[in-house]
């Protein structure tokens, strides 16, 4: 009982307090957001260690048992050790400024020129950018599938996409320059963006807001319990 009732009680009380906090600017309600934000940071600091330990455990286990794809786990362990050593121990092989203790020096591992900084800019950053760059290809392949005129809705999507794309580039107005003033392809693209798109987005936003209110109410009232795990 304790495992379910206590979290439900805490959820209800905290949820209710945060709802009324929005309308009461007086202390102690005023500082609640800052206090909770600090608490979350503290919990996160502990949770990240749990996460790291879990990652290492899962990876080492894979390597030990030679499971399928264990080589990737080896890359994880190697990268983890390399960046940790660069972050924690770089003063051991880097020139220390005069008057700095090792501890003072170690605190500045993020500064330009450090090993950690080198890893960030020459290993992490290019890899991350490469991943992001693949998005262009994913957009192309998704567009190819989405823009096939298989139904009325898909045809409508294709036409809208066509108009918006041509309306967004200078060549669009050159190719369709013969259209009357006010009906240029860029004007139609603007209309698509500002009228039907905004109307649709607002309808979805209203739905989302109502959904959030409804979910919050279910959580505060203890009707929603699936997130609590086991039932006892």
């Amino acid at each position: 009982m304790m495992r379910r009732e206590i979290p439900l009680f805490i959820t209800s009380v905290v949820g209710f307090i945060f709802v009324i906090r929005f309308f009461i600017p007086h202390e102690p309600f005023y500082s609640l957001e800052d206090v909770s934000s600090s608490w979350i940071q503290v919990i996160q600091a502990f949770a990240i260690w749990l996460g790291i330990l879990n990652l290492l455990k899962v990876s080492l286990d894979k390597i030990y048992k030679k499971e399928r794809g264990w080589g990737y786990s080896g890359v994880i362990i190697f990268s983890f050790l390399a960046i940790s050593i660069a972050g924690f121990f770089f003063p051991l092989w880097e020139e220390r400024p005069a008057g700095y203790s090792y501890l003072q020096h170690a605190r500045e591992f993020l500064k330009p020129g450090t090993s950690f900084d080198w890893f960030y800019w020459y290993v992490y950053s290019p890899l991350s950018s490469t991943m992001f760059a693949t998005l262009a290809f994913f957009i192309a392949s998704a567009s190819f599938r989405a823009f096939r005129a298989r139904s009325f809705q898909a045809t409508l999507l294709l036409l809208s996409g066509f108009v918006v794309m041509f309306g967004s580039v200078p060549v669009g107005n050159v190719l369709f320059g013969w259209l009357p003033a006010g009906w240029q392809v860029s004007d139609i693209a603007d209309w698509v963006r500002n009228v039907p798109q905004v109307a649709g987005q607002r309808a979805i936003q209203i739905g989302i807001a109502l959904g959030i209110i409804s979910t919050s109410l279910r959580l505060i009232l203890g009707l929603e319990r699936a997130h609590l795990g086991r039932e006892e």
């Binding site: 309808a203 979805i204 936003q205 739905g207 989302i208 109502l210 959904g211 959030i212 409804s214 979910t215 279910r218 929603e224 699936a226």
Partner: peptide, 13 residues
Amino acid sequence: IGEELFAASAYLS
């Protein structure tokens, strides 16, 4: 779409 995400759990329950 929209509120359907928030309705999913209740709907399934």
